[in-house]
Amino acid sequence: MANKPIEFNFPKGGIFTIVLLVVLLIVFSKSTVTIGPGEGGVVFERFGDGINTEKTYGEGFQIVAPWNRMIIRKVRQQSVSDEMNVLSINGLEVRVNGTIWYEPEYNNLGLLIKTKGEDYERELLDPAINAAARSVVGRYTPEQLYSSKRDVIEQEILDEVQIILKDQYLRVKRVLVKDVKLPTTIKNAIETKLKQEQESLEYEFRIAKAKKEAERQQIDAEGKAKANQILSASLTDKILQEKGIEATLKLAGSENSKVIVIGSGKDGLPIILGNQ
């Protein structure tokens, strides 16, 4: 006996319902967007005026019309590093390696994308950084760039970038100059010069220290000589005799055996002939 094929009998309108559900599912999937942490979104209205600059959408689940597109960008602080070839004040080529911290203005994200495009870092930030770096580095010599001017250069580049990006809906928060690379010959010359300057300062310090020590010893010797002079002037023969008598009386009271000859010493002072 042959097997009969199984037949499914859909109710009237069943196929239409399934098709409708599939269409609704597709429309729903096209209409929902999830914006991640630290991100913001703006809507591109396909049948409207393009980017909607009135509203920035925050983190979480968002619903948009299926014919529109949600553009999502990071709105938290970000950083970009770059290495630029710039010229110093004397025309020497210098390579500056730096990092920039920036963030878009959240409420003006739509205006930023509408005026500068989705790739606004390349269109707006990179040219501003390069222009500021060239302007600032061009004010200094290689020696200044290599040694003591690093923090000043960072602040001046930051100031320049903020002026360039004023009213451009993009804020630069900080500039860090990681490294300044000079040609090897220039770098070696600067290091040799700095070493010689350090040795010269050390030599001058030693000379100054020795000079102060000599002055101290001279003052000490002069003080002792003056004290001896004053003491010698005050020691008359009478005072010396009195001091001799005092010493004799103390010795006479000592338990050690001795012979004291009174009046036999120079200037009539006693002579001690014996002791223990």
Rank of each mutant, 00 (worst) to 15 (best):
N85P: 07
I26E: 05
S79A: 10
E118F: 07
F61H: 08
T56H: 08
N107L: 12
I71C: 04
G91L: 03
N90E: 15
R69K: 15
I35A: 05
I113S: 06
T34G: 01
N52P: 01
G98A: 10
E45H: 05
V80Y: 15
E59A: 01
N97D: 13
T56I: 13
V64I: 15
E45A: 09
D82T: 15
E93A: 03
G60C: 07
S81M: 11
I113R: 04
Y57F: 01
S88T: 12
W101I: 00
I72D: 04
R69P: 01
T115F: 06
G40P: 09
K30M: 05
R95W: 09
E105P: 02
T99R: 12
G60I: 14
I35R: 06
S81N: 12
V75Y: 02
Q62F: 09
E83K: 11
V43R: 06
K55T: 15
E105H: 03
V42F: 06
E118P: 03
T56A: 08
V43K: 06
E121S: 09
M84V: 14
V27D: 07
L111K: 00
I100M: 02
Y120M: 00
G36F: 01
G98D: 06
E93V: 10
E93W: 02
T56C: 10
D49K: 15
K114C: 00
G50H: 00
N68M: 01
I72G: 03
N108W: 07
A65N: 10
P104K: 05
G36Y: 01
P66E: 04
T115N: 10
G91E: 03
P66R: 05
L92R: 13
T56V: 15
T34Y: 09
V42P: 06
L112W: 08
G98Y: 14
K55P: 04
D119E: 12
N108S: 14
F28K: 07
S31G: 03
T115Q: 09
Y102M: 02
I72W: 04
V27M: 11
S79Q: 14
G40M: 10
A65E: 06
T99V: 13
L87C: 02
T32P: 01
V42T: 06
T53R: 11
I35S: 06
N68A: 00
L109E: 08
Y106H: 11
L92H: 07
E103T: 07
L109V: 09
R69E: 05
K74R: 15
F28V: 13
S79I: 05
W67L: 09
V27A: 13
G38D: 02
G40H: 08
R69C: 02
I63P: 01
I89A: 13
L109F: 05
N90K: 12
V80L: 12
